[in-house]
Design a protein around this nucleic acid. Sequence first.
DNA 1: TTGTAGGCGTTATCAT
DNA 2: ATGATAACGCCTACAA
Lengths: 333, 333
Amino acid sequence: MATIYEVSKLAGVSLATVSRVMNDNARVSDKTKQKVLDAMSTLGYRPNATARSLASNRSDSVGILVSELHGPFFGQMMAGIESELRAAGKHVIITTGHSEEDKEKDGIEFLIGRNCDAIIAHVEAVSDEYLLELNKGKVPVYLMSRHVDGMEDKCISLDNEVGGYLATKALIDQGHKDIAYIAGPQFKADASNRLLGHKRALVEHNIAFNESLFFIGDFKETGGNDGLRHFIKQKIPFSAVVCANDEMASGAMKYAREHGYHLPDDLSIIGFDNVIFTNYLYPTLTTVDNPVNEMGHMAAKLVLTDVYKNKKLHIERVFEPTLIERNSIARLN
Amino acid sequence: MATIYEVSKLAGVSLATVSRVMNDNARVSDKTKQKVLDAMSTLGYRPNATARSLASNRSDSVGILVSELHGPFFGQMMAGIESELRAAGKHVIITTGHSEEDKEKDGIEFLIGRNCDAIIAHVEAVSDEYLLELNKGKVPVYLMSRHVDGMEDKCISLDNEVGGYLATKALIDQGHKDIAYIAGPQFKADASNRLLGHKRALVEHNIAFNESLFFIGDFKETGGNDGLRHFIKQKIPFSAVVCANDEMASGAMKYAREHGYHLPDDLSIIGFDNVIFTNYLYPTLTTVDNPVNEMGHMAAKLVLTDVYKNKKLHIERVFEPTLIERNSIARLN
DNA sequence: TTGTAGGCGTTATCAT
DNA sequence: ATGATAACGCCTACAA
């Protein structure tokens, strides 16, 4: 690997001059500039990002921390962030937290150690205090899908409460009253806020919350299975179930069909997130849109303006979920 | 951020000694070691990965290049690689190539510049020659889902030809003879090999390949739509269609159902990849398993033994696809 | 076992 | 406009 030193020798200039042309931040005469560029290309010179980063304390790359690398949710999120950043010439370094406190911290420290100019994190296990402390450090940390008081200017979030409300309301509007609810892990703010919205919709329509028709799942397909099995065992009638995310909804649909339910006539189901496969399900799943991809773009725009001082882009920090009506809800009369 | 220098001062030892305890590669007396560790923790010292990497020319992290960050295929692949590597204390730096030659090269150079100890790449647009040239460089490059002559020891691949054969054979075994085929972009080796397998199955069973029942799609849902629309327009009877991947299969299923076909009775469909959502489809999709997750694990094991000299792990370089029978194929008689 | 000192490839501050 | 020359934070012979 050719170094800046060899380039300077070949071009007959100093190290400093070579550095100047690669960064074109200082005036260099066209003639010497050309000499340097020529030398670079004949040597096939590639700047060493590590050395650069060490010397300049920048890296032109932002760290991303997600819970998992697979799954439609994080896929869309990462893709949104990456495409926005890449268009601006920045790179992305991705790592995972697996929703475990230790691993999330480890991941963040890895990214800091990697000299990222900023970090965009989707963390679920770590405490608000930790994040506030982190926020005092020198590398700015932005939060996806999470709102933390005291760093609201660094949070991009979805109004999950409204989302939960919309989901349940969609069912109520179709005449449903006996509504089961499969929640997500309650330590996750997303999950607990969605539940809050659900309860508000119930209250507003004078429907009592029934503990027997409440189940906490794991945000995965199995959670939907387990939840529905549980409800059926209760032998209490219910005509609809809202699932706190689409994975669980699909699990519930599958379980229902395997147990003789005709969908949506025998059972209405609504999901949350509007993940890609909701379109593939049969019947197609009515759900609440969670614009993760857009939110990813927005997070990227935020670091672009805050950290990289790009000319002001339009920033929007909290997103409103919307109802996506498809075919998994039946009208009750 | 505390540096190694401050730690050495506080502990009353030299820089070298501090370095030794962090790497524990040289003998240090227990007493001084403890002093250093204490100093580290009271200072909250975190080694600077960039400086480390520059000095040692290692980084304890491997670069991953995938075409896209979203989508079940790459999600599984990244997850497989990451979990295996992480268990071994290595980190992962992910970037994308978007199936475009320039971006793939850019991504690889980024990873090299980042001083990755190795690179695991899923590249589609770049030429074999480029890869062979790259392979002479100092950072080892491993290829996912691609076989390149001359660097077979660095390739983890699936026998796509066999997979294509299995898919078509599954249909033939159920009595189908008029079989349409929706292929993937033929510049992708995966796609062209699957087609080869399809043709072999046809030949073996004395079925002529019919150009009118052949369509090249984009490996996305739209490809399935477009393909099926095309076939129907031909007004040639066909009882089954094999799709070169699951996304296209789902598109085809959807289009078929929207146009009055009852699945699988009116039309049998088989996919490829056994991506997660095939389970969610209705009817559930019969497909060919592409063990990307396992292959990711294997690629990671490969770099673990080759690059990090872990004790020999069992390595398997080419994977055999298997048929996953579900409910999207009807028996014809 | 421990310390000294040069080096990794760039950037950036002074001079000139 | 260009050139010396310290940093940047750590590793690693080589010495002691």
